[in-house]
Simulated scan of single mutants.
Amino acid sequence: MSNSAHLDVSDMISNISLEPGLPDDVIDQPNLRDLISSTKFLLLMECLTYAIFSVGFVGIIGNTLIIMTFSKVGFSDSINMSYLAMAVSDMGCVASIVWSGLCWNSNFFDSVIAIEAREVVLPTGGFSTTAFGKITAMITAFISLERCMCVVIPLKVKTLITRKRTVYFIVLNYVLHMFPAALVYIVIRFEWKFSEQRNRTVLGVKYMHNPNQRALTDFIWLFYSLPLQFIPLITVVICTIFLVIALNRSAQWRKAYSQTTTKEGQNRNEIGISKGTAAKRRTRSKEDRIGKTVMIIAIVFIVCSSPAAINNAVTRAEPEYRASGQYRKLNLFVAGSAACVNAVNSSVNIFIYYNMSSKFKLALKKLLCLVN
């Protein structure tokens, strides 16, 4: 395989992955200038891996607890199914990012494990991270849209978004995003090769380049390209703005309602009417709590997803910022940092659920045997 062919595929992969990973012949090419030296770049990437490991440790434990807790709470509310599906995708995303960070850590790379880690990281970590990240993004957009529909058409939303339709959406979402990631194994081959640097035979990757396989890589790139990345992000932004407005209106309504019932409390009959409307008030309070939970999840998603989206947009706009350009190491470091931030997005939901949902908090405490 020619070096130029290798660069083409590596360029395509690095632009759609959420974390970097390129073999040494791309990192250390002497004929390309870069702002970051190879030694400094590898040091920065190694430091970044320790941040990824720390976040990933929290994310794996947190998402495991989320999955177990929602399994105990049940799915009487269809949104719990979305929370559970998002926890599964977050778990896959965090695990993939941690694996990618492990491959970039020199202690692992130079260990006794016979793997060419910086080659293997692309098909084993890059595409799975991208796929799980897209799944999380679509589920976040889905629950944000569902909350908006609860405000706009509260009487119809339960018939439009049923548990069965939620399951269909979740399954389709997973299949739609995981299938292209699996197709990458058609264009790559794992093979044993001799490494002069390590003086031993290691497992590496070879990229295939016949016309059909090249067309397949183009399809995968188009599928994971910018439009699909920005659609859920834009959806979440719009829905979050709408939810903020709706929650502010609800807070004003509760304040006005409280003042009215206080004045009317002097009349017993009107007190009876007030008690009759207490159930509606509790229902609205529950919907507001769910809305606030979704809003916080959406805001965290927007903040954590924006760096990767912006980095990918710049990559497409500036050729020198790509994996074959003079700023390739800067691109890879920024992409790795965005991956770490993305891992944060996939790790913090347990703290959001714990603080926003009394039912989740109680179920989690029972799961951890903190209460009877």
Rank of each mutant, 00 (worst) to 15 (best):
R289Q: 10
I97L: 10
K366P: 06
K134W: 12
I97N: 02
K280T: 15
V152D: 13
E146W: 08
T129Y: 01
C47N: 07
I296A: 11
M91C: 12
S89H: 00
Y353P: 01
N212L: 15
R198G: 06
N349P: 11
V151P: 03
F70E: 00
G133Y: 00
K263M: 15
D8W: 10
A5M: 09
T283M: 15
H6C: 08
N63M: 04
I271F: 12
G101N: 01
S106E: 10
T69M: 02
V88R: 01
S144H: 03
S14F: 07
A181Y: 03
T260A: 14
I36T: 01
K134I: 13
D28T: 08
C150K: 10
L7V: 10
A308G: 06
G74W: 02
A85G: 01
S4L: 11
G92Q: 05
K158L: 12
T166I: 04
I352G: 01
F142H: 05
V171L: 08
I170M: 03
K263C: 09
V58H: 03
L362P: 07
R328H: 06
V348H: 05
I115V: 14
Y224W: 06
S258N: 14
K193D: 15
L172M: 13
C340I: 03
E19K: 07
L145Y: 09
N372Y: 08
P180L: 02
M208L: 15
G74Y: 01
K164F: 14
S82Q: 15
A137F: 02
E196Y: 11
L247K: 07
N63F: 03
G56L: 00
E318N: 12
F169A: 02
P30I: 03
I161L: 14
I61M: 09
P227C: 06
Q229L: 09
E264I: 12
K361P: 03
M91H: 09
P180F: 02
P123H: 02
N173W: 00
L228E: 07
S17I: 03
L332N: 06
A256M: 12
I234F: 05
F301S: 04
I115T: 07
R33I: 08
S225F: 06
R118T: 04
E196Q: 13
R249T: 07
F219Y: 12
I299A: 05
N173I: 00
L172P: 08
N107L: 14
S337Q: 04
G126T: 00
V88Q: 00
A131H: 01
V202G: 09
M86Y: 06
R165I: 09
A87P: 03
V184W: 00
Q252D: 12
R214I: 13
R254W: 14
K280H: 15
G101Y: 01
V151I: 14
L364S: 05
I220T: 04
S358L: 13
M91Q: 12
T261E: 13
F75G: 00
S37Y: 05
S128H: 08
I271P: 07
L44W: 03
R289E: 08
L370Y: 08
H209Y: 13
L44N: 03
A308I: 05
M81V: 12
W192R: 15
F230T: 09
F242R: 13
L367D: 01
I115F: 06
E270K: 13
I234D: 06
S347P: 00
C103N: 07
A313G: 10
I271R: 14
P232H: 02
L32Q: 05
H209R: 15
